[in-house]
């Protein structure tokens, strides 16, 4: 094994690779944003899906408010006696109003607005509730009752979530591939720039490993330096965006809780990029040297 020896010049202003730390910073920044977006959406989808799992919403439509109120009481009794149902609650009018106000505006929910009666049904997690059979049962009370276990739109939601997650993963892979390409290009440029030095090192008996070590060390430093700058800017961006979204979307959409533990994975991004740059530079140098005498 050759002893490590940094023989490459440190004249930054003239080096072909002087912009590489900045490129790595941008790559880590984009990767961190893609990963954060994916993690936040994943966490948000999980929160929403968990809150809806084991719940069925019953909706009774009708213009006669008193009639649908009576039907709601009757349906509540029917459901309460049904096995596998843990609790049934008629959602009070003021709660429905509070849910609608962010969308329709305060004071716009008037008495003549045909707001349906709604029941929130909690099922046993371990039991299977046949929604069709249950709907048939409550339809004996009224035809204008509808049951929703959110499965249909949750499945759309999951499709969207997976699409976004795989897109983010695809973006990450593309960024990694772009980073590898840039490091290969940078390594080759640097080797061309320092061809004379490499030749002299060879002629004086330097092993390929010694030359590769000098390059891998330098490119690892570029990766680490750029990576940390990129990560810091990415974290500031995420913090700023979340604050902005919270201010704008407050009330309309429930913001997902920040998955701090999962987000801590971002801290290893600079190291991943540094290791990637190091390995790529090493392989590139050894391959290029292999073509020499």
């Amino acid at each position: 094994m050759s002893k490590s020896f940094d023989f490459l010049p440190h004249v930054k202003s003239r080096e072909a690779t002087k912009l590489l730390p900045w490129v790595m910073a941008i790559m880590v920044y984009l990767s961190a944003l893609a990963a954060t977006g994916s993690l936040l959406l994943h966490s948000g989808f999980d929160d929403w899906a968990n809150s809806l799992q084991g719940r069925v919403t019953v909706q009774i439509i009708g213009e006669d408010r008193d009639l649908i109120h009576l039907q709601a009481l009757e349906i509540k009794e029917v459901l309460r006696k049904t096995p596998g149902i843990r609790s049934v609650r008629i959602i009070p009018d003021d709660e429905i109003t509070a849910l609608l106000e962010p969308w329709l505006g305060v004071g716009n929910i008037t008495d003549d607005l045909p707001i349906p009666m709604m029941l929130d049904v909690e099922t046993d997690v371990d039991s299977y509730v046949n929604l069709e059979a249950l709907e048939a049962k409550v339809k004996q009370v009224t035809d204008t009752v509808y049951l929703d276990d959110h499965a249909r739109w949750l499945s759309h939601f999951y499709t969207l979530a997976y699409t976004i997650e795989y897109t983010a993963l695809g973006i990450l892979i593309m960024i990694l591939l772009a980073s590898i390409s840039i490091v290969i290009f940078g390594t080759k440029s640097s080797m061309a720039e320092h061809k004379n030095i490499i030749e002299i090192m060879h002629l004086m008996g330097a092993h390929d490993q010694m030359i590769a070590q000098a390059y891998q060390k330098r490119f690892m430093q570029y990766g680490l330096k750029g990576g940390f700058y990129g990560l810091i800017i990415a974290l500031l961006t995420v913090y700023g965006l979340l604050n902005l979204v919270q201010n704008i979307a407050g009330g309309l959409v429930e913001m997902p809780s920040l998955p701090y533990l999962k987000l801590s994975i971002l801290l290893i991004f600079p190291f991943i990029f540094a290791a990637l740059a190091m390995m790529t530079a090493r392989i590139t140098v050894l391959r290029e040297l292999g073509r020499m005498v």
């Binding site: 023989f7 010049p9 440190h10 004249v11 030095i197 090192m201 004086m204 008996g205 010694m210």
Partner: peptide, 16 residues
């Protein structure tokens, strides 16, 4: 090697 001093240039074979 232009980025090394005379001493460093002469020491190069020993360091290698």
């Amino acid at each position: 090697l232009d980025h090394m001093s005379a001493v460093e240039n002469v020491a190069l074979p020993l360091r290698i």
